[in-house]
Design a protein around this nucleic acid. Structure first.
Lengths: 219, 219
DNA sequence: CAGTTTTTGGCACTCACTGTCATGATGGCA
DNA sequence: TGCCATCATGACAGTGAGTGCCAAAAACTG
C-alpha cells in the first residue's frame, strides 16, 4: 500500500542529459504516457458508474486493454489510476508560475490554471467528473490530497525564487502551502460551478477564488 | 481501502440527547477510547521500529492485546491506527478557537496548539516520533493529510462564526484551508525542532510559524 | 439475578498487490 | 536487412489487508 509514485520514464529521462542526445526514444515513452492516460480515463468512467469499491483493478485493466499485472506496474493502487488527470492542472500551474516574470502579479500566471490546463476537451470533462466524485469517495480524495501535497515542494521553490527567500525557510513554505490550498479550493469551485452552470461560470469561479486568495498572500 | 472513519461511540453519543440522561454509560466508551489510544501507541512503536510495510495488522493487534478482527473494527486500515495521535492537536486547536472571544487575535488561541494539546507526556512523545516518520512513510503521510482535511470543515465554521461570514462562502473556506495548512507546517516544524533541539525550541518554532501565518490572514 | 444489547473473536473469503520468470516488442547498430 | 540488447508485458502463484457472518462473552437494564 505504499504510494511511491514513479513517473513514467523518469529513469530514462534522467539518463538523457541533454535535450535528447541518446536517451530513450520518445515513441515508447509517448505510448506509455498514452496508456497511463487511457487507464485514468477508464478508471474514472468505471468509478463514476459503479463507485470505487465496486470497481476491481481487473476491470480497469480489462477496460484499458491490458493485463492486471501491467496495471499494477503503471499504478500502485487502483485509486492512484486517476492521478494523471488530477495532476495536470497543478503541473501547468507550476510551469506557468515558473515562466512568469518576477514583477508580474501572481494571479496572472494562475487565473487560467486548472480549466485551460486541460487543453484537450476529453481530459477536461473527465477531470470535471472526477472532481465531482471526490466528496463521496474517500479513496480518491486521498489521491487528490497527495497530488496537492506533492505540488507543495514545487511551489515552495518557485515562490522562494520569485521572492528571493531561502527555499528551506519558513515563509516560502507557508506561502506555498497556502497557495496550494487556495488552488485546491479554486479547482473544487471550478468543478462545482462548471457542473451547475456552464464552463464560463466555472472558469469565472476559479479566477475569483484565485484572486481572492492571492491578493492577501504577497508572493 | 475505503477510509470511512467511524468515531468511537458516535452512535451512542447521538442517542444520548442530553448531558447524559439515559445514554450509553461512559465506562464502555472510555474503555473504547483507551483501546483506540493503546492501539495507536503500539502502532507507532512498531512502525517506528520496523517500518509500516514490515508491520502487519496482526502484529499491531497482538501488541495491543486484541484479536485482529477487533483491530479492523477499530480502524479501517493499519495506517489509520495512528489517527488518534495525529488528530489530538487539531481537535484542541479547534476547541480553543471556538472558545476564543471574537475580539482577540487568532494566534492567542493557537499558539499553544499542538504541543500543549498533548497534555500527557506519552502522547506528546509518541506524536513526536510519529511526525518524524511522515517523510519516509507515504501511507502515514496520507493519514496526516486526511486528518487535516477533516479539520478544514470545522475551521471553516469557526472562522465563519468569528468573522460573521457565510459558512458556505468562498472566503471562510479559503481562510480555513490556509490556516489549516499553516498549522500543518507549524506542527512539522515543531516536531523537527523538538527533535533537533529541545521541547522549548520546538514550542517556539510552532509559535513562530503560527504567528507568521496568521498575521496575514485577517481572521 | 434474568433478559437484552453490545462487543469481541473465530473462520472463511475476497481482492489488492507483489516477486518471479518467460515471452514478445522495440530500438540500436552493423 | 538482420542480430543483439533492452525493456515492456503477461502468466502464475503467493501474501496479507480487510470484510461478512455467526457464536460466545461481556456490559448494561430492569
Amino acid at each position: 500500500m505504499d504510494i511511491t509514485v514513479e513517473q513514467p520514464g523518469t529513469r530514462d529521462a534522467e539518463r538523457a542529459d541533454g535535450p535528447r542526445p541518446s536517451g530513450r526514444p520518445p515513441l515508447t515513452e509517448r505510448r506509455k504516457a498514452e496508456t497511463r492516460l487511457a487507464i485514468a480515463h477508464e478508471a474514472v468512467r468505471l468509478f463514476a458508474e459503479h463507485g470505487v469499491a465496486a470497481t476491481s483493478g481487473e476491470e480497469i485493466a480489462r477496460a484499458a486493454g491490458i493485463s492486471p499485472r501491467t496495471l499494477w506496474r503503471y499504478f500502485p493502487s487502483k485509486e492512484e489510476c486517476v492521478r494523471p488527470l488530477l495532476s495536470v492542472g497543478l503541473e501547468t500551474a507550476a510551469r506557468r508560475l515558473r515562466e512568469l516574470p518576477a514583477g508580474r502579479p501572481l494571479w496572472e500566471g494562475l487565473q487560467a490554471g486548472v480549466p485551460s490546463a486541460a487543453e484537450r476537451a476529453d481530459v477536461s470533462s473527465a477531470l470535471l467528473r472526477l472532481i465531482r466524485l471526490l466528496p463521496d469517495e474517500p479513496g480518491l480524495r486521498a489521491v487528490w490530497l497527495r497530488v496537492h501535497h506533492d505540488a507543495e515542494r514545487v511551489f515552495t521553490e518557485v515562490i522562494a525564487a520569485r521572492t528571493g527567500a531561502d527555499p528551506d525557510g519558513l515563509v516560502p513554505r507557508l506561502k506555498a502551502v497556502m497557495l496550494n490550498g487556495a488552488l485546491r479550493v479554486a479547482a473544487e469551485e471550478w468543478a462545482r460551478r462548471s457542473a451547475e452552470a456552464d464552463q464560463a461560470a466555472g472558469d469565472e469561479a476559479f479566477r475569483r477564488a484565485v484572486l481572492q486568495a492571492t491578493e492577501s498572500l504577497d508572493i
